[in-house]
């Protein structure tokens, strides 16, 4: 009887397990130093998301999910291994005044910042990301197309993985916990 139950659980869980939640890089990728932030990417684990403050749908939804992901991950790893969430606004001209308040709205520990176009571009390049500012309307409002994946940075400042929508909190937390185990193994070698 027991193996039938186990098989049933496995079959029920299978569709969820097959959905890709994150992709681990084969080799860690070094990132250039970023001087435009108080957030030190070399401290702890960092999840980086690109967006803009007036993003009506995708960014608030992703941040809501990241809040849940951080909570779920907190149940699986040591407190000092819970990732920091960093939002980088790709619209500095419009967002600079409010950017420090933005991420805090979703979680008190989240941080958000912006920089010069060159600095943003360097980080976009280094994380193999993308953004494009669209043509402004008559009110000056412009839309932004941007990369929707979240980059995972290890404590050594290297890019390790990408998280992808739909950002299921429990599955991403599992992915991040596994990522930490392989990182520790690597350190122990």
């Amino acid at each position: 009887m027991r193996w039938i139950t186990a098989l049933l659980i496995w079959l029920l869980a299978w569709p969820a397990l097959t959905q890709v939640q994150g992709v681990m890089l084969d080799e860690p990728l070094d990132l250039p130093p970023f001087a435009f932030t108080n957030t030190d990417l070399d401290e702890g684990r960092t999840l980086i998301m690109f967006g803009f403050l007036s993003c009506p749908d995708i960014c608030p939804f992703t941040l809501g999910n990241l809040e849940a992901i951080v909570t779920e991950t907190g149940m699986r790893v040591r407190p000092d291994n819970v990732p920091n969430v960093v939002v980088v606004s790709v619209g500095p001209e419009r967002d600079a005044a409010f950017v420090s308040e933005y991420a805090k709205f979703f979680h008190p520990d989240f941080t958000s910042f912006t920089g010069t176009r060159d600095q943003i571009y360097a980080l976009i390049e280094a994380t193999d990301s993308f953004y494009r500012l669209m043509k402004p309307d008559h009110t000056g409002y412009y839309e932004v197309q941007h990369y929707s994946s979240v980059s995972v940075i290890a404590p050594d400042g290297t890019l390790r993985a990408k998280l992808q929508p739909p950002f299921d909190p429990a599955q991403i937390a599992e992915f991040l916990a596994r990522l930490q185990i392989s990182y520790r193994k690597e350190l122990a070698q």
Binding site: S54, D57, P60, F98, V99, E101, Y102
Partner: peptide, 12 residues
């Protein structure tokens, strides 16, 4: 309407 974060010009 989800509560909007500060600094936004648009929400959903």
């Amino acid at each position: 309407v989800p509560l909007a974060p500060p600094g936004m010009m648009a929400h959903a």
